[in-house]
Design a protein around this nucleic acid. Structure first.
Ligand code: MN
Ligand code: MN
Ligand code: ZN
Ligand code: ZN
Lengths: 126, 126
DNA sequence: ACATTGTTGCAACCCAGTTGCATTAATTTT
DNA sequence: AAAATTAATGCAACTGGGTTGCAACAATGT
């Protein structure tokens, strides 16, 4: 079951996501929230928002889950995936703007795809 | 630093990987090994094998790391990625045989890509 | 205002993965 | 072959992301 009631915390969570250009982990979100919020509460909000399709999540190399606002995959049919990138030096996670079109395997009923590029970001290269 | 000495455990680990068509988690590997092996040892062997490029790893939705033998990305240049699939019902993880060709973003020096499809496998559908 | 029920905080818990250290075993040197 | 060297192993304690049961609280409908 997704979000039902519009609570203060929920509004703040959504505001933090909108103001961030990058995906966030639960820990980063906790630190970014203006009020002190219990971590259980944060995890439960994230679960519900994902249930509702408002956010997507994906795992990074350090087995930490990151979350980002969904930007329009909701329309249904196609399995869309905007890819993500993690810098192996500074560990920062970011979105790739370009949509990636993937051939969908026939062997199963695919409902989502996660693409994670890794390497070194510009600032870590220079 | 990668593997240096050819120990009994290491041979058994490689044998298990060769006999398995699917990627394995550390837990699955532990259970598949003929001898009782300490989990720290297993994790350390996996680390070293990945350092050496013998195996690749990727995270699944339940934040569990899976490992699979590298099948020929070693030749260098191209960022190759054979995609993986996890069934959301039975949680089984498998490889997709078809190589996936991805446009490599210019914004960073990409060294690897992970692609994880999720959905329902054939047997869970029927 | 009241009843209903979703949400929150708390504390305890789970589990994948890590780490420090003493012991063991593979490889090199003599 | 024996000794020396050092990588690999087992163990136990630990870390940290994430979960869960439950009582207290707060949003929503009437
Ligand atoms: Mn989306
Ligand atoms: Mn490979
Ligand atoms: Zn970086
Ligand atoms: Zn299945």
């Amino acid at each position: 079951m997704g979000v039902v009631r519009k609570t203060k915390h929920l509004e703040q969570v959504l505001r933090v996501f909108r103001q961030s250009s990058d995906p966030l982990s639960a820990r980063m979100l906790l630190d970014a929230l203006p009020n002190e919020v219990n971590k259980s509460t944060v995890y439960r909000m994230l679960d519900k928002l994902e249930d509702d399709g408002v956010i997507h999540s994906f795992m990074t190399l350090e087995h930490i889950r990151f979350y980002a606002l969904c930007k329009g995959c909701s329309s249904g049919q196609r399995v869309d995936s905007h890819a993500h990138f993690q810098c192996t030096s500074c560990k920062r996670v970011s979105c790739f703007s370009d949509e990636i079109v993937l051939p969908i395997p026939e062997k199963a009923r695919i409902t989502s795809v996660q693409v994670l590029f890794t390497g070194q970001c510009q600032s870590c290269l220079s």
